[in-house]
């Protein structure tokens, strides 16, 4: 038994380390199985689009597609801009000034996906219901957005998202 002292501990240590590495290797090999479900390269590649704004008159809207979602483009009337500027920030569930949302006040450009559960709000077409705040209205569970696309009433927690926008020319933008 004299010499077993040392060899016993090393054998046991070896077993622990071997078991531990085996567990770690198994855990790592599960990652590809999980990660394959994430958006793939071709989905990510579609992530920017250019839009020509010239056809849109004051008071009109246009909807384009970006990353599979609609982008709401609205050329706001002076009235609508005034309405948006007049709201005190403390009245907003998700306080954001109008100037943070529209680089050029006339052009409001947002992802047209309700921040509640993802329906497309109404308000782009003439004659659509536009909600209590004269902006957009999501019929799915009743969220009301104002003329700056900010949430005012209903279950949606956040304002309509403003995507990354770059003005290439006076009336040409790149989204994404």
């Amino acid at each position: 038994m004299a010499h077993t002292d040392q060899s016993d501990t090393t054998r046991r240590d070896f077993l622990y380390i071997a078991t531990g590495s085996f567990a770690a290797a198994t855990a790592f090999s599960i990652w590809p199985l999980i990660d394959q479900m994430n958006p793939d390269a071709s989905v990510l590649a579609l992530s920017s689009t250019e839009v020509d704004l010239t056809p849109v008159e004051v008071g009109q809207s246009m909807t384009v597609k970006w990353r599979g979602s609609p982008i709401f483009i609205r050329r706001r009337t002076a009235e609508e801009i005034k309405e948006a500027l007049a709201v005190p920030l403390e009245d907003l569930p998700d306080p954001e000034a109008d100037s943070e949302r529209a680089e050029k006040p006339e052009w409001l450009i947002m992802v047209g996906v309700c921040t509640h559960l993802g329906c497309i709000p109404k308000g782009q077409k003439l004659g659509d219901e536009r909600g209590d705040y004269n902006g957009w209205f999501c019929p799915c569970h009743g969220s009301h957005y104002d003329t700056a696309g900010r949430i005012r009433k209903g279950p949606a927690p956040l304002n309509l998202v403003v995507p990354p926008i770059e003005y290439l020319e006076e009336t040409k933008i790149r989204i994404g």
Partner: peptide, 17 residues
């Protein structure tokens, strides 16, 4: 959500899985 859908919106990867 993106992981479940395999994209930014429900699409072909979602249907497949």
């Amino acid at each position: 959500v993106e992981w479940l859908r395999g994209g930014f919106v429900v699409g072909n990867p979602t249907l497949n899985r």
